[in-house]
Simulated assay, not measured.
Amino acid sequence: MPAFGSSLLITGPETLLAQRLVAATVAKARKEQPDSDLNEISASELEDTMLSEVVGGSLFSSNIIAVIDDVGACPAGVVDQLVEVARNPSEDLCLILVHAGGNKGKGLIDKLKKAKVPTESVATVKTWELPKFVVEEAKRQKMRISQDAAGELVSAVGNDLRALAAAVSQLAADSDQEQIDSDLIRRYFAGRAEVTSFAVADAVLAVNATVAMERLRWALSTGVAPVLVTSAMAGAFRGMGKYIDAQGSRISSNDLARQLGLPPWKMKDYARTSRYWGPGSVAGAIQLIAVGDAQVKGAATDPAFALERMVLGVLALARR
C-alpha cells in the first residue's frame, strides 16, 4: 500500500513501538517522495485553521507527511474535520495519527475506527513475551541470543522496553562475537543491586546454601539495600507456590507461563528446583521472608544478621 493517499492510526501505550512505526512510515513515504515536507504537531494545537495548514501543501512541496501526536487531546471542534481528512486523505498526503491508548479521546478513536482508518496496535508487551522482544532486538542488531539468556537480561533490566532495547544495543556493541550470552550479561550487569538480589533468591531456590550465603554477603558488602533481598526472595517463592499449585495442569509450558503470569524461561528454573519444595515449605518460607522483611525495615537492630537468619531458615525448610 502506498504511503501517500493513506492514513494510519497508531494506538497503544508502548511508546517505543509507536515511535518505531511512525519512523518506518515516514521512511516509506520519504522513499516514495524524497522532497516531501514533514509536519509534526500535537493534536492539542489543532485550533482554528491549524489542521488545514498541517495537512495542506506548501510553496516548496505538494507532498506532505503529517504526524499528529496525542490525538486524544484533539479539540472537540476539530474532531469531525480530522476524521474526514483521515477517511479521505488526498493523494499527496501521508497522515499518521498517534494515540497513547486509554479512554482519552475515545470518541474520536471510535469515529476513526468506524471510518475504517487503518489501525496498528502497540499494546503493552506481556511479561512472558519480553524474552521474545529481546531476541528480536538482538536480530535488529545482527546478533543472536538464546531464550534463556534473553530471560536473564529481562531479570537484570526489568520490563521497560526502552531499557531492554538500550541494554541489547550496549551488549551488542561490547560483544566481540555475533552472540550475546549469559556470561556477557552477568559481567555487564553484575553491579546492579536488583540482579544481585535475584541471584541470592535463585541460590536459595536451588538449595545451594554455600552460594546463597556468599551472594548474600557480597550483596551486603556492595551496598545492596536489605529490602531488595527480601523483595526478591518473596517474589521467587510466590512464583514457586504458583508453579507447584499448577503442576498437575495438562497444558504446555508456555500456556502455563501465561496462566501464572511468569516468563517461560523462569518456568525452567522452577521445574528444575521444584523437587526441593512443597506447598508447606513454600508457605513456611513466605512466612519467614515476611518476618525478615519487617526486621530489615526497622524491627531488627542488625539487618544483615536478620537476613542471614532468614536465608538459613528458609534453606532449612527445603527437602534434601
Rank of each mutant, 00 (worst) to 15 (best):
K126V: 03
W128P: 04
E129W: 04
F133K: 00
V134L: 01
V135K: 09
V135H: 04
E137N: 00
E137R: 06
K139T: 13
K139R: 05
Q141A: 08
K142M: 09
M143L: 14
I145P: 02
I145G: 00
S146Q: 00
Q147A: 12
Q147N: 10
D148M: 10
A150P: 03
G151V: 02
E152H: 06
V154K: 01
A156R: 00
N159H: 10
D160A: 03
D160K: 07
L161R: 01
R162I: 06
R162S: 04
R162T: 06
A165D: 10
A166P: 05
D176I: 11
Q179D: 12
I180L: 04
I180N: 04
D181G: 09
S182P: 01
L184H: 14
R186N: 14
R187A: 11
R187M: 08
Y188G: 09
F189L: 08
G191E: 11
G191W: 00
R192W: 11
A193C: 05
V195A: 05
T196V: 07
S197N: 06
A199E: 15
V200C: 13
V200K: 11
D202E: 06
A203K: 04
A203V: 01
V204T: 06
V204D: 07
A206P: 08
A206V: 11
A206G: 10
A206I: 08
V207H: 11
V207G: 03
N208L: 04
N208V: 04
A209T: 12
V211H: 01
V211I: 08
A212N: 08
M213I: 15
E214V: 07
E214F: 03
L220R: 10
L220F: 04
T222R: 14
T222P: 01
G223H: 03
G223T: 05
G223P: 03
A225N: 13
P226V: 07
V229L: 13
T230A: 11
S231W: 15
S231P: 01
M233K: 05
A234V: 09
A236K: 12
A236E: 06
F237I: 05
R238I: 15
R238Y: 14
R238H: 09
R238L: 13
G239R: 13
G241N: 13
G241R: 11
G241H: 12
K242Q: 15
D245L: 15
A246I: 12
G248Q: 14
S249I: 07
R250F: 07
